[in-house]
Simulated assay, not measured.
Amino acid sequence: MKNELHIFFDYICPYCLRAHNYLKELMPEYPDQAIVWHPCESHPRPERFGPHSDLCIQGYFYALEHGVDILEYHDRMYQGVFQDHVNIEDIDILADYVSDLVDVTKFKSSLEQGTYLEKLKESNELAFEHSGVWAVPAYRKGDLKLDAVENVGVTKEQIRHLLEQS
């Protein structure tokens, strides 16, 4: 929909973290703006660039389905990667890290069983095969596009300009 802002991002991308913080600052100015989150892997497996975000993203889909505050989940994942240096590739460690947000047993079980692997695959395909995302973060609003410059990201003013478009 034209009035929805679609955001493609990855939890291991420092430019996504910066853009996420910009968006959180700007959101109160645009209370009617609908946001649709699309987590995607900036470097999917089996390529090895370390660490991979596939479990964090599957956890996002768990959180979404179970009514967890998504902004709080995003903040936690970014904090885990960039501040607390949590091993996000270990299910037990990741589950313990979000234990105050989720039912740990169910969260772990969903990751171990790959409950959201198909959602992860669909989200990656939406980003890279259907939406023309080259680098994250990337934004889509109707026919409008805002793509990060690789290894630079986007500016707060670019996000504001996109939010102002209707």
Rank of each mutant, 00 (worst) to 15 (best):
H20A: 08
C56A: 14
E41M: 06
L5T: 13
I57E: 09
R18L: 05
Y62N: 11
L23V: 13
E65H: 10
E4I: 09
N87P: 11
I7Y: 06
M77W: 05
Q79F: 07
L55W: 04
Q83R: 13
H52C: 01
F9P: 02
E29F: 11
N3R: 09
Y60R: 04
R45Q: 10
H52K: 05
E4G: 01
L23S: 01
R18E: 13
Y15N: 08
F49R: 13
I7P: 05
P44S: 06
L17Y: 15
C13P: 12
H6F: 07
Y73G: 08
D75S: 14
Q79E: 15
L26V: 09
E41S: 06
L71P: 10
H6Q: 13
P51D: 08
K24M: 11
E47W: 15
P46M: 00
E4R: 09
V81I: 11
E65F: 02
R45A: 07
G67P: 07
L55I: 07
M27A: 13
V81D: 07
P31K: 04
H43L: 04
V68P: 08
A34Q: 15
D69G: 07
Y62R: 09
Y73E: 11
Q83G: 11
Y78V: 02
I88K: 04
M27G: 05
V68E: 03
C40M: 12
I70L: 15
L26Y: 11
C40F: 03
H52A: 13
R48Y: 15
V86S: 06
E65T: 12
Y73I: 05
Y11D: 07
Y60C: 02
F9D: 01
Q79K: 14
Y78L: 01
S42V: 12
Q83V: 12
C16A: 05
D10G: 03
V86A: 01
N3H: 12
I12T: 15
E65Y: 06
C56E: 15
G80N: 09
G50S: 09
G59I: 01
Q79T: 13
Y60Q: 02
D32M: 04
I57W: 02
G59Y: 02
Y73K: 05
Y11K: 03
R76E: 09
Y11T: 04
K2Q: 13
I88N: 05
R18G: 02
L64M: 07
L55C: 05
V68Y: 10
R48P: 06
M77S: 07
I57D: 10
Y11A: 00
Y60N: 08
V86K: 03
I35V: 15
K24A: 11
C40G: 05
Y62E: 10
G59H: 08
H66C: 01
P39A: 02
E25G: 02
E25H: 12
I57G: 04
Y15V: 03
Q33S: 04
D69L: 01
